[in-house]
Design a protein around this nucleic acid. Structure first.
Length: 850
RNA sequence: GCCCGGGUGGCGGAAUCGGUAGACGCAGCGGACUUAAAAUCCGCCGGCCUUAAACGGUCGUGCCGGUUCGACUCCGGCCCCGGGCACCA
């Protein structure tokens, strides 16, 4: 046997990539004659190096793009950088490097790594959101939205670090304390810029029904997030005051059970009383302790303090006490809620704690009265203790009570959304400057000239935005002052998909090329973006549409939410209480028999580290795995194959590096078998052989083709492995050569989207064709699928008792006969009466006994 | 706390519409080749019972219950893990 060139991925991959470069294989051009396919993966934040989550995301996207290309579509697959954000400022704090330099160095590194993986990107469309040519159009859009009245300014509650004198992100609040200072975080209201996304709430909700190629779970999450509800806004008068308190409820049927109102510490009713009552003042101060994250507000201990005012129940006229409560925020809703302890669990607990009366006004529709001594009864039922409303069902009472309140001018019906307007201003440096100017008279105007360029030479010091300390930036003279807040980075990532269509458009935000490419046919990204990013991008698409810049209603036709790559986290607590996170690659662990971690220590110093649980790979928890080592050792194709094989794309993947060797072994076998078979020779006529190997080949091909459509790429690979397993014994048989060649030709094309380098090499080197990118997609030979014999299971009462190999065209009565005579079956049916026999053609016969 | 997912051998996973649970791979074990190792190739591989072995039996898809001739799949209740909760991206 002749010596076979060993598989050398580094060489094969460099050659293939050079070929794609010289042929400009992935540069996309608009061509109205061809069907387009726009495949987009969520662009990365340039945090440093590529981690496994990136590799997984971009490999999935690349497989989709290359698959569509092989189907003959005109494919656009761009790539860029979500380049503004907090980590650049954090790196600057640590290393004193300007965020711009850090970011651009990371972009260069990560671009090199992406290229090494062989992704089919059109790099001529590369975008970085920190480039003036990109963000100038955000500023332009912002001014347009100001003109349209879709931007406004309002107080909003933020996390305030009283020591560092800075606003903290929710992520920077750890156990109620600032991550750097360790100081107790306070809630503080400051003026912020808002976008009226709620104007689009109904359209964003309705649009979900059209997104049939989105995962149902994402649509459900967005529906709940938008959270449309029908309810009643009710006004309560206050004893001895002209002011009123307004509340909103979706359960007006329970209104007769109100025994308390709870209002926010910042509510206008509270402020005048604070000066008079020291206890109240101290309670209000306590209320302002802690962060603003909803999870924190919902899980903290609910506290209240009686304000000393009584509200007048709008129907009964009873007096109900008003409490100040730490779980009501002034900036959401009306800043007040009604409490119905008998029928709401949170209110029930609140009433227990402060010894407030409970008044049951709903009886369960069926059975005897519910016991509210153990907890609230939240189910709908029939009204009791509700005067003239007694006996109504909850549904009827909702209507009747709403009507009563409206008739007596005490309330109104309202449709509300849980969705809140989008606060887009950030008190940070490394972002797009908001193009507004504070005039000497206190009014606000849009900037005279765009772009407002962000100075790149500033270095943050952890005590607020350096822009605020940079008169060169903000001081416009004559008392005019530039806004120093920057835009939320979600602003930049909400329209990049459109800019890729025309990244060089100099005269406008978007040009006519978007009409060819949009909407995006396939969007791929982490499931963690299921709500915020995807909702904001849908919102922006509608803003851009209403601006006349694009025509589609929704930006992303099909969505694949890739599961996360998660890994264990490890940390040590520093003397100041902060946590230092260690990468799993630097940690050694000892596990017990159940696989639980017993002991973990840093390999560098042997000292223990604390396991922090498996979490999404992230910069902040330092648990990203560097894929570079694997690429160096095995090559890009092996890494691509491995990440696609080891789990279905939508499932989360707990990182472990066993199994990579198996993926590599498969590619080596493919290489060896292809070279043993040698250059393509002989007839090119379609084969007519219907032997067992071609049956395996074409039934596996059929499975692989359908799995490509279903995006079950892990089982595409399983099918390819089965095909290679079937071919392997035939390699040394000269007569089987046509079948092996056919098999390899199918296999190479099936694998081309997943492992593009090795398939490119073998295809052209062994004479299957000039360039696998131009090859036709394989097709199933139906004749090869036919089988003369099938194997069926025989069950008795649903338990498998025997196997039957029988002619595929055996009719049903013959099958019943054959099943009953089987020896082992006889043991179970002897002496007993057969009640029925169920035949599932091609699968099983089930004999049901008495 | 609320919303959305997930839980199948030692491990990753398969089972597309309620129809033979464990495809494909990893790890492991046994064998071939080799002076040896690596690589490669061949075979075995959920637990328990029975058996010389095969055949066979029985349990088994997080837990408890239900529907069905038949349940990983459907229904009810629970447990655990992951994601999101509006300033991480």
């Amino acid at each position: 046997m002749t010596q076979i060139t060993p598989y050398c991925p580094q060489q094969v991959e460099a050659d293939a990539q050079a070929h794609w470069q010289t042929t400009r294989a992935f540069q996309a051009t608009e061509d109205p004659e061809r069907e387009k396919f726009y495949c987009l993966s969520m662009f990365p934040y340039p945090s440093g190096k590529l981690h496994m989550g990136h590799v997984r995301n971009y490999t999935i996207g690349d497989v989709v793009a290359r698959y569509q290309r092989m189907l003959g579509k005109n494919v656009l697959q761009p790539m860029g950088w979500d380049a503004f954000g907090m980590p650049a400022e954090n790196a600057a704090l640590k290393q004193g490097q300007a965020p711009a330099d850090w970011t651009r160095a990371n972009i260069a590194d990560m671009k090199r790594q992406l290229n090494r993986l062989g992704f089919a990107y059109d790099w001529e469309r590369e975008i970085a959101t920190c480039d003036t040519d990109y963000y100038r159009w955000e500023q332009w859009l912002f001014t347009r939205l100001v003109e349209k009245g879709l931007v406004y300014r309002k107080q909003a509650t933020v996390n305030w670090d009283p020591v560092d004198q800075t606003v903290l992100a929710n992520e920077q609040v750890i156990d109620g304390r600032g991550w750097r200072s360790g100081a107790l975080v306070e809630r503080r209201d400051i003026p912020q810029w808002f976008l009226r996304i709620t104007d689009y709430a109904e359209e964003l909700l309705q649009g979900l029904d059209q997104l049939t190629a989105w995962p149902e779970q994402v649509r459900t999450m967005q529906r709940h997030w938008i959270g449309r509800s029908s309810g009643v806004q009710i006004r309560f008068d206050i004893v001895g005051q002209a002011d009123q308190v307004e509340i909103y409820t979706t359960r007006p049927d329970t209104v007769m059970g109100v025994t308390c109102l709870a209002i926010a510490a910042e509510h206008p009713l509270v402020t005048p009383l604070v000066q008079q009552h020291a206890d109240l003042a101290s309670f209000v101060r306590n209320c302002q302790q802690g962060g603003v994250a909803e999870a924190e507000l919902e899980t903290m201990e609910k506290c209240g303090y009686p304000l000393g005012l009584q509200a007048i129940h709008p129907i009964s006229g009873d007096y109900v006490p008003i409490y100040v409560a730490n779980f009501v925020l002034m900036s959401y809703g009306t800043g007040a809620v009604m409490a119905v302890p008998a029928h709401d669990q949170r209110d029930w607990e609140f009433a227990r704690k402060y010894d407030l009366p409970m008044r049951q006004v709903i009886a369960p529709a069926e059975g005897t009265g519910a016991d509210i001594s153990q907890g609230a009864c939240t189910d709908p039922g029939v009204l009791i203790n509700s005067g003239s409303f007694d006996g109504l069902t909850s549904a009827a009472a909702c209507d009747a009570i709403a009507d009563w309140l409206i008739r007596h001018d005490k309330g109104s019906r309202q449709t509300r959304y849980r969705l809140r307007d989008w606060s887009v201003s950030r008190q940070r440096y490394w972002g797009c400057p908001i193009p507004m100017v504070h005039q000497a008279d206190g009014t606000l105007q849009t900037a005279d000239e765009l772009p407002v360029v962000l100075p790149e030479d500033l270095v943050p010091d952890g005590t607020g935005s350096p822009l605020k300390k940079s008169p060169a930036f903000y001081n416009l003279g004559a008392g005019r002052r530039r806004e120093t807040d920057t835009l939320d980075t979600f602003f930049a990532s909400s329209w990049y998909y459109a800019r890729y269509c025309c990244p060089d458009a100099g005269q406008a935000m978007l040009d006519e090329r978007v009409h060819y490419w949009l909407p995006v046919d396939q969007y791929v990204g982490g499931v963690e973006h299921a709500i915020l990013h995807l909702l904001y991008a849908r919102f922006f698409n509608k803003l851009l549409r209403d601006e006349g810049l694009l025509h589609c209603d929704e930006p992303f036709t099909r969505l694949l939410t890739q599961g996360m790559v998660v890994a264990e986290t490890y940390y040590r607590v520093q003397p100041d209480g902060s946590r230092d996170w260690y990468n799993p690659a630097e940690v050694r662990v000892e596990k017990d028999q159940q696989g639980r971690i017993q002991r973990a220590w840093l390999s560098a110093d042997g000292q223990p580290v604390i396991p922090g649980g498996t979490e999404k790979m992230s910069k902040s928890k330092n648990n990203g795995i560097d894929p570079q080592r694997l690429i160096d050792q095995y090559g890009a194709d092996t890494v691509r194959l491995y990440v696609m094989f080891s789990a279905p794309p939508e499932q989360s993947l707990t990182w472990s590096d066993t199994g990579v060797a198996g993926a590599h072994r498969f590619l080596k076998r493919l290489w060896t078998i292809a070279y043993q078979t040698g250059p393509v020779s002989g007839t090119t006529e379609p084969l007519t052989d219907t032997g067992p190997v071609r049956h395996v080949l074409h039934s596996q091909l059929q499975k692989a083709l359908s799995d490509y459509e279903r995006q079950h790429y892990n089982t595409v690979i399983s099918a390819c492995m089965s095909m290679l397993n079937a071919l392997q014994p035939l390699v040394s048989e000269a007569t089987a050569r046509p079948v092996v060649q056919e098999g390899l030709s199918i296999l190479l094309r099936l694998l081309a989207p997943i492992t593009p380098h090795i398939t490119h090499h073998l295809w052209s080197q062994l004479g299957y064709g000039p360039d696998i990118l131009q090859a036709d997609w394989p097709q199933v030979d139906q004749a090869a699928l036919q089988q003369k014999q099938v194997q069926m299971a025989i069950q008795v009462n649903g338990k498998v008792r025997a196997q039957l190999t029988i002619a595929a065209d055996t009719d049903e009565s013959a099958l019943r006969q054959a099943a009953q005579v089987h020896e082992n079956v006889q043991r179970f049916i002897r002496d007993r009466t057969i009640r029925r026999i169920i035949v599932v053609p091609g699968r099983l016969v089930n004999i049901v006994m008495v």
